[in-house]
Design a protein around this nucleic acid. Structure first.
Lengths: 188, 188, 188, 188
DNA sequence: CATGAATGAGATTTCATTCAT
DNA sequence: GATGAATGAAATCTCATTCAT
């Protein structure tokens, strides 16, 4: 029994969007790559835009699930932050296509199609955690939005760096681990 | 005496690309917004792609010129880095459209139309400066590409933060200044 | 016990065709409105065209049955014509959707799908009646086709008039009755 | 110098719409018949709907102009009404395509795209004239909307009759003239 | 009988680009 | 240089119809 056609479409779309961009990828090509008929795409997604947004939401959820799964049950605050940071970067490493798609999406006019409270909800757990760290006096007392943005951007930078290098996985892990310590120096 | 039609087109394109994206902005709309005829656009730019790339290069150059102009003649290495960092963020603050256009461009398939050695050349001065800092033992001995990426991403994060807040200019300057100290703690 | 699915489909189609037109109404919408599955429509009607034609024929028959039922057994020729005229208008009043559907159908390329002899057959009783009236010297000696067309158009006009007014049923009956006398003046 | 491309498109559309109906006529066929490129149609009419409506308005205006031109300067009220009635029917005879298109349009959901006050304005001259006739005591005192509808429908019926016969022009003129007298008997 | 996922031909519409004026 | 009508390839999307379950 083969994969769901909806999933086949999402997979095909992901691959092609990353390679050719949203507008460089006709829906007909997505259908072809997925091995389904042209109209089938529109059976599952009312419009091309809806497909793009659905793909983003799907990826976002998968990544969040991965990060939380891998970072739960740490003893200290620092351990928790570190594991989340590492998990994010490991996930990005193992899901290059998804990561690059998400970056492309976030820098496109499509982002405005995500309801602001949905975005809000997705960052809340991180904000809450940072607030706790501040209350416990472990990290600097700064607005959590600022801290979160700085951490995210730092991770983003590391990823960009990896894209322009050809490191082994081991070396990448090393860099990630080092970079966290730099980040931590900044936060405390 | 009115502006050059070429400049009118670039101005219109910038505004519309930021609002609607590259593909959400037809050339006809750019021409209309610029107040010139449809075909005139193609006198100045052979293709739409050429316009997009020209706009990016133009913006890139203006920003670089601004940063170098404002950061020259500092006494110490830290002062030099700091002034460049501040100048970048001040420029982004004063040129929101240009900044957002550049971000969109960098996350699009158009980026590949910029020759790699052109990109190389534009970051070289920064790399050289960082190399000097390392040699002088002022900052950590890490690959300059990594250090540069981290600094750039940090600045990117601060900008993102400003976009979601409504700070006064004075408050923004405060945050920028503070954030540099955090960054510096990370680099040394 | 609920209605026959075929009837549910006809009802839904009637309502939607009048509101959106034949081509503005997808079969999927008809099925949805009828509360049945998409494919079910094609069990009962081989094609969409067949559904449209079937609906028209059904309506035509119901109207004819109504008119004949209500106009039978009149003493004089004038009484007979009058009762048929009244019955037609009363029926149209009570079956607005059906009436408007029929008008739309008659002014569409679908009309050509009704066999000419079927049309012939449906008007024959009226032609026969008029021929009798001429033979008896009650009405003008003119081609029955012309007389019938004039009578039908007259009724059509009255209906159009009602659509743009908001008369009570009583007032409508009054107008219908008056209008028949005007019509009769023309025929005799 | 050849005809305006816009006019070529209107001419082609008219012919094809009457033959195949609005929805049976693809825009590509209209362009082909007009001898212009596909996109040219959309240069002149933003949508297919806009073309359909524009065509109707154009036809409506031409007919009105014809009727008024041919019926002006009559001595009596009856003469005026008669000349307008005759002109309408002669116009329909000489402009079969236009007439049939207009009938199709009026019985379609497109009609609702004509602003009510535009419709109002087009019938006003006729209503005014009828009001005058009533005031002068020449015709029955009935609502002018009713009288106008009856006259229009009468003319419509005559036209329908002509479509199912094969009369010579002379014979048609004879019938039209006769039918006006029948109509007049009804109005007075 | 009934379903609804799947199809794919075809329709409308967009838009970068050209070119005669 | 400047114009804007004209182009036509290509994109998105619709929808009547089929068919395995």
């Amino acid at each position: 029994m083969q994969k769901d056609k909806k999933q086949l479409l999402l997979d095909a779309a992901l691959k092609l969007f990353v390679e050719y961009g949203f507008h460089g990828t006709p829906t007909s090509l997505i259908a072809k790559e997925a091995g389904v008929a042209n109209g089938t795409l529109f059976h599952y997604f009312k419009t091309k835009d809806e497909l793009i947004v659905a793909l983003y939401v799907d990826i976002k959820n998968r990544m969040a699930a991965y990060v939380f799964e891998n970072a739960k049950g740490q003893a200290t605050f620092k351990e928790t932050v570190k594991e989340q940071y590492l998990a994010s970067l490991f996930w990005a490493q193992d899901n290059q296509l998804q990561y690059r798609f998400a970056e492309q999406f976030k820098n496109s006019p499509y982002l405005s199609q995500i309801a602001p409270d949905e975005i809000e909800a997705s960052v809340k757990p991180f904000h809450d955690m940072l607030r706790m760290g501040i209350k416990e006096g472990v990290i600097k007392s700064q607005p959590v939005e600022l801290l979160f943005t700085i951490i995210s951007s730092h991770a983003y930078g590391i990823n960009q760096y990896f894209m322009s290098t050809n490191f082994s996985k081991a070396k990448q892990h090393q860099v990630i681990s080092d970079s966290f310590e730099m980040l931590w120096a900044m936060l405390t």
